[in-house]
Design a protein around this nucleic acid. Structure first.
Length: 283
DNA sequence: ACACGACCCTGTTCGC
DNA sequence: TGCGAACAGGGTCGTG
């Protein structure tokens, strides 16, 4: 589900109920997600105040007044929903308990923040705030695509000499942070580059042209509140709407939307994952 | 160092 | 309608 725009959307939805607010109690309903939850997590988090809520790539980082930072990754099916009676929380007031509600944060003021993840590909960890960026899960992640470090010089240098396809390269979190299957498909369509194209067979100028396109796609997706596939929701239960602007993702068989192209979108598999592209305008 | 496949787990959708 | 197969937005790990 969640690529960078969805995680950023969740973060923004959580800010009003979490940032600056004390966590009164935490219900930890199972010992593990994909890996074990942090030891004594409920005790370590309960009673602390959330000093700031940040995002790095697809990770949420909650800096706690205890000096620890809670890392949260949503995996494929993870969601975070706000419910309760806090000021400004009007939706989801009456949520049924779901068997995949694995961790529930009870906030001062009455809001409940529920982490729900049926597939349990998500993850949480607690680490010292001062070394959070060096956490093993974050240490090898590349630059933020919306930050200054991600520019044309960086991308062309980083991809130079790679033998893999451009699709795999952009999905590689060490190259650039936060892109997933959907947004890579969309970026490559806008760029007119086939997902099966080898990086080594792309001119430097074409690689460089990907940089502003990556930024545009992510920026637009965040502005739209992310993409809602299946039943994915924002923290307040609302649906994002960027999925309505997908140009290739999930559109196999449809006519390419690029003006004057007239091609047909096809779906192919690359290392077990679907790719969507228009063979007519993506080369 | 790099690239690829298998794997993690559950729910939903597709095809017969 | 029923049932198994295929598939799903994530990352990690081992292998060659």
């Amino acid at each position: 589900m969640p690529e960078l725009p969805e995680v950023e959307t969740v973060r923004r939805g959580l800010l009003p109920v979490m940032e600056g607010t004390r966590i009164l109690r935490v219900d930890v309903n199972r010992p593990d997600l994909r890996r074990p939850l942090p030891k004594r997590m409920a005790e370590r988090v309960s009673g602390t105040r959330v000093m700031s809520l940040r995002r790095r790539s697809k990770y949420l980082l909650a800096d706690l007044s205890s000096g620890e930072t809670l890392l949260v990754h949503l995996g494929m099916s993870g969601r975070i929903l706000v419910s309760g009676e806090a000021p400004g929380v009007f939706r989801n007031r009456h949520v049924m308990h779901d068997r995949h509600d694995h961790v529930v944060f009870h906030m001062e003021g009455g809001a409940r923040v529920t982490f729900n993840d049926p597939r349990r590909f998500g993850a949480m960890d607690l680490v010292a705030t001062e070394s959070a960026e060096r956490h093993r899960l974050l240490a090898t992640i590349g630059p933020e695509p919306l930050g200054n470090a991600f520019d044309e010089v960086y991308l062309t240098r980083t991809l130079k000499g790679r033998r893999t396809t451009i699709k795999a390269a952009l999905l590689d979190q060490r190259v650039v942070a936060g892109l997933g299957n959907i947004y890579v498909c969309e970026v490559l369509h806008r760029a007119g580059v086939s997902p099966t194209r080898r990086v080594s067979r792309l001119a430097a100028g074409r690689i460089a042209s990907l940089v502003p396109i990556v930024r545009d796609v992510l920026f637009e997706a965040i502005a739209a509140g992310g993409s809602s596939l299946r039943d994915y929701r924002q923290a307040d239960g609302e649906l994002g709407y960027f999925q309505h602007t997908f140009r290739v993702y999930g559109r196999d068989g449809e006519t390419c939307v690029k003006p004057g192209c007239g091609g047909r979108v096809v779906r192919t598999a690359q290392s077990g994952r679907s790719s969507f592209h228009c063979p007519q305008c993506q080369r």
